[in-house]
Amino acid sequence: MISIKNLQKVFTSSSGSVQAVDDVSLDIEKGEIYGVIGYSGAGKSTFIRLLNRLEDPTSGEVIIDGQDIAKLRNGQLRKARQEIGMIYQHFNLLWSRTVKDNIAFPLEIAKVPKAEINKRVQELIDLVGLSGREDYFPSQLSGGQKQRVGIARALANNPKVLLCDEATSALDPETTDSILNLLTDINKQLGLTIILITHEMHVISKISNRVAVMEGGQVVEEGDVLEVFRHPKQKVTKRFVQQVMGDKEQDDALEAIVAEYESGTVLRLHFVGEKTNQAVISEVAKQYPVAVNILQGKITQTQKGAYGTLVVHLTGDDDDIQKAIQYISETSVEVEVNPNVE
């Protein structure tokens, strides 16, 4: 569906040049929710603006449904943009227009007949859950409701792709979850390809199928969200995973507790998907003469299933501890022995 090849963007000014996007190549499948995560200055917002030519690339290709957006001009580009919806962090609504008139705006630009506009607008209002607020102005809406208007407007021309630039960053956690649930529903109902730019790992873990991690204008890590959670390779990726799975105060406390143990073995167990429901620890305690002390546990839900970690301390005969570790490993739970708990 989307193939990005050697994409680059260099901004040049009197003070020098800045490489905002540096040789990025990605393939995004039709109908998936693809996350791009990075801290401020990583190049992710420039990257997403290159996908619909709000920024012109310095070089490279952006092929969407067989068409290189980077090469289109004038009328061809306007037509292609109608198939790429975009929602923004700060909504970008027209404050003098009502909800229904904001949603109708791109249809008016496309010169769609009035009767078709009215029908389409009502469909979208129902889809995003704004029935009864058709005649409200943006100033009368909550942040979440404003973003729902932004989503409806982005869907007005039946796009194939929806770009989300920090779409939940201005919202509180509860509203963020409601917007992410809406995007998931839209993805399922419409088969829409969604590309999500964010600096929050919670957003990625909740709805993305795959993720690319950006730093310094480059994609430094990419893969299935669950796999990235289990085995983050880059330092920046580990920091993002820590956002969801970590708690600095708890980790400091855990480190102090572990330091007090003079015997036994500390394990960090990684549970994935349905394995998070297995009663592994209770089975170990039943089958082997070892004492199990649970030190810390964390779990999060991803689009591909639950991912959890559990840190435990085993005491007993060394041979029995090794047998217990072997048993745990055979259940397909990943085991780290004496891990760095920082």
Rank of each mutant, 00 (worst) to 15 (best):
V266M: 05
Q303H: 15
A256D: 14
D251K: 14
A291Y: 13
A279Y: 10
L254C: 06
V311K: 02
L254Q: 07
S263H: 14
E255V: 14
E249K: 12
V292I: 14
E260V: 10
N277I: 11
E283Q: 14
S263R: 15
E274L: 06
A285G: 00
L254D: 02
D252N: 12
Y288D: 01
T309R: 06
A291V: 15
K275A: 08
G273H: 10
Y288F: 15
E262Y: 10
Q278M: 11
N293F: 08
S263N: 15
N293W: 07
A291Q: 14
G308D: 02
G305F: 02
Q303Y: 15
E260F: 03
Y288I: 04
V272S: 10
A285S: 11
A279T: 15
T309W: 00
H270E: 11
V311Q: 00
D251V: 11
L267D: 00
L310G: 02
E249F: 10
G264S: 05
V258A: 05
V272D: 09
G297A: 08
L269M: 05
S282L: 06
E255Y: 15
L295M: 04
S282T: 15
V284G: 01
T309G: 03
L310K: 04
A259F: 08
E274V: 08
V292S: 03
T309D: 07
Q250R: 14
Y261W: 09
N277L: 12
Y261G: 02
L267S: 02
A259P: 10
L269T: 01
A285R: 09
L310Q: 05
Q303R: 14
G273Q: 12
K304R: 14
V312Y: 02
G264V: 03
E255W: 15
G264I: 01
Q278F: 11
V266Y: 01
V311C: 00
A256C: 09
I299N: 06
I257W: 10
D251N: 13
V312L: 07
S263F: 10
L310V: 06
H270R: 11
A279W: 03
D252M: 11
Q250W: 13
A279I: 08
G305Q: 02
G297K: 04
L269S: 00
G305T: 04
T300Q: 05
Q250N: 13
T300M: 07
L267T: 01
P289I: 08
E283C: 08
R268F: 07
L269V: 05
E255I: 14
K286Q: 13
R268D: 07
A259Q: 13
I294L: 12
V311A: 01
V280E: 01
E249C: 09
I281Q: 04
A285Q: 09
A285K: 10
N277A: 13
G308S: 04
V290G: 04
V292L: 09
L269W: 01
Q287W: 07
I257N: 07
K275D: 10
L295N: 02
T309Q: 08
Y288A: 01
Y261Q: 06
L295F: 03
Q287R: 13
S263V: 13
L254A: 07
Q296D: 13
E283W: 03
Q301N: 11
V292W: 05
G273K: 13
G305S: 01
G305C: 02
V290M: 06
I281A: 04
R268T: 13
K298I: 10
E249S: 12
S282D: 08
V258S: 02
F271V: 03
I299H: 07
A306C: 11
Y261S: 05
E260A: 12
V280K: 00
A259C: 09
